[in-house]
Write a protein that binds this DNA or RNA. Structure first.
Lengths: 231, 231
DNA sequence: CAGCGCTCTTGACCTGCGTCAAGGCGCACA
DNA sequence: TGTGCGCCTTGACGCAGGTCAAGAGCGCTG
């Protein structure tokens, strides 16, 4: 068996990858086959910028493995992390829907396998396979809700409250109380709309009060979720 | 001619209304006719709550005339205005996509004519008319972008900057430099994530510096858009 | 057209968090 | 297994803007 780049190197492998993508979960084997034929898989190393603000980039990207950070940059240089995506997630859909320059950056946080689907292909699928459009609606709707949550939290809760809610959210997502932050603390701070200094101080405060424990730079144990809930 | 409630009282009128809704702009006359047959039009007075957080409300609402404010309420009682919708806009789509209780409130800001479309009907249209799904994707994508803008602005710009950007945005939307705020200043403040006091002070500051002029409670004239841009 | 209510304004105060600046420490590299 | 770089932490300080409290003016209703 030939290994070109260490990733899925034949049509079968690729079809399996495509079949696992939630966006295509409503499609049958033939349809998956068709899409797999149009897809361009690519392994990208950690820290690669897939595209940046200002670029016109009419591809829908699908993450098979790894993770990607989406962020914006204000003229002031202020970086705002918008979301972090993982296996099965897609991004770049805005370019398909309104063909303007991107307003954000996409960079890999780890070595990742990412597929690209061209503008015309995806438009075609959206029209032919309503389930694809429907799943995309579900996803965008969920993203919209979570972004609205971010806005509410930004004005309704203070820094400590947002940080506590974020940690509890991670715990719920991972189904455990001990976990590693998926991104650096600097990025967590940006995502939550606080400075790294404030994040550090609040976490130390939580630790002093016995609500959490920190190990190394990323590991967090939640010791008292209840109390953290009303922090 | 009979007037039941002062609004569209026959199928013809209703079809014209439906045809003007952007969501259905890709449909032909027969399809419009079908949808018009399923729609429940209703005139609601100003200040009516259409639904609230916690309610399960599986209807897509379409605004023919008037305007509707969408907001959330934190446990603290803090009100966060999420968006304000006008003629041609739809809302309530989240309930269709994931049938959970609403997380927000919808209240009319003026007497409004609003149509409701049931869960099953809309799901059916989404599957049968890809253009409806596509238009909805466009809309959600645009909303997502503007909500992401809100998040960026919340952390990247100070109160004055957000207020200035908001005024300039209104001016652009209305294509003139003199206009009335579409909502009360209290609501503007909530939307921008500041207190009414801060909004008032900043506006007075702008006025003192000759950037704007205020008349009554709602009318704003932008005198120096350029300078307001780097406020 | 008069009265009232609600929105908005203004003032005084104070605190949370951003900013700037300097170490400490863990991780990846050799 | 060192070692250095970048991430993170800690400290001191200042101010933007939130809070509380009162007063003013607009616009709606009768």
């Amino acid at each position: 068996m030939e290994h070109h780049h260490g990733h899925a190197d034949n049509a079968d492998e690729l079809e399996k990858l495509v079949a696992r993508v939630p966006l295509f979960s409503g499609l049958n084997a033939d349809e998956i086959h068709e899409i797999a034929g149009r897809v361009r898989p690519r392994i990208v190393p950690r820290g690669t910028q897939l595209y940046g603000a200002g670029e016109v980039n009419p591809y829908l990207r699908i993450i098979h493995t790894g993770s990607v950070k989406i962020y914006r940059l204000a003229e002031s240089g202020h970086e705002q992390v918008i979301r972090v995506l993982g296996a099965g997630d897609f991004f770049g859909e805005k370019a398909l829907i309104s063909p303007r320059a991107a307003d954000h950056f996409a960079v890999t946080l780890a070595e990742s396998e990412v597929c690209s689907l061209g503008h015309d292909d995806i438009r075609d699928y959206l029209m032919r396979y309503p389930s694809v459009a429907y799943t995309m609606l579900e996803t965008l709707s969920a993203r919209l809700e979570s972004t609205e949550d971010q806005v509410s939290a930004m004005t309704g809760e203070d820094a400590g409250g947002r940080i506590a809610a974020y940690l509890l959210g991670l715990a719920e997502e991972y189904h455990r109380t001990s976990f590693e932050l998926p991104i650096t603390k600097k990025d967590v701070a940006s995502y939550l709309g606080v400075t790294p200094e404030t994040l550090s101080r609040k976490l130390t405060g939580f630790e002093d009060n016995g609500l959490i424990r920190q190990q190394g730079h990323r590991r967090i144990d939640i010791l008292d979720a209840e109390a953290l809930g009303h922090a």
